[in-house]
């Protein structure tokens, strides 16, 4: 299962905060797709995944797929 999280128009740290609040609401193994157009998100979403030990499945044009692993 996947949940979309539209963070377009929001600037960091808001997309990361929303991701951090949303990921615990999905089951382990499920994904959240973050739509974010803030340039800082390109660095900060992968960094969040690394710091919080979650899986960055893909990072594309303003779109980041994150899988809950714990």
């Amino acid at each position: 299962m996947n949940i979309d999280l539209d963070c377009r128009g929001l600037i960091c740290p808001l997309p990361v905060i929303k991701l951090a609040k949303t990921l615990p609401t999905v089951a382990v193994g499920d994904t959240v797709t973050v739509l974010a157009d803030d340039p800082a998100a390109a660095t900060d979403i992968p960094a969040w995944c690394r710091m919080r030990s979650q899986e960055l499945v893909s990072a594309g044009e303003n779109q980041y797929v994150v899988r809950r692993v714990s």
Partner: peptide
């Protein structure tokens, strides 16, 4: 980014792949 005039994060932090906010 929010502290810069360009609203872009530091190119140094981005190149390192570390948290910028």
């Amino acid at each position: 980014a929010c502290t810069s005039s360009t609203l872009r994060p530091s190119h140094v932090l981005a190149a390192m792949g570390v948290l910028t906010h």
